[in-house]
Amino acid sequence: MNDERITVGITVNGVTHRAVVEPRTLLVYFLREQLGLTGTHVGCDTSQCGACTVHLNGRAVKSCTIFAVQADGAEITTIEGLARDSALHPVQEGFREKHGLQCGYCTPGMIMSAVHLLQANPRPTDAEIKHALEGNICRCTGYVNIVEAVKWAAERMRGDHVSR
């Protein structure tokens, strides 16, 4: 065991936190237990399930696979930081509109992966959506309505873009 403590500065959902962590603290536990942001979930211990997906400097990453110290200086967005001014992000809305969730446990990670996909590819095909969600397991929905939710959101986001 290592008693060393390290001070990190991590910006989460726009707020910069200076915190002391153990070197072995995973980013997901830093978020959940030190910051109380429990929307990011832990579903496995082998980086397979994707329930812990967050954005690190704009990219979807599995926060169980990164040490908090590796995120020093980074900007993190979690599911709690996605809705702006109490308005749901279109992907969040899409999951509700298309019944893309049941128990809700995979949902935050699923949504963060989908948001990342749509930022990179605003017009994904079904196959591209499924490919982008390959790292996220859902045991409830059979993924059918998750794909529909992402398509719904994609249309909506493109529409918003045009109307501006």
């Binding site: 109380g36 709690e80 509700r96 949902t107 935050p108």
Partner: peptide, 21 residues
Amino acid sequence: IRRVEDPLLVTGKGCYVDDIQ
């Protein structure tokens, strides 16, 4: 009908056992 459960769950405000400290 859309689910009344969802607004909390899609925003990370669900409360599972491990979320309680």
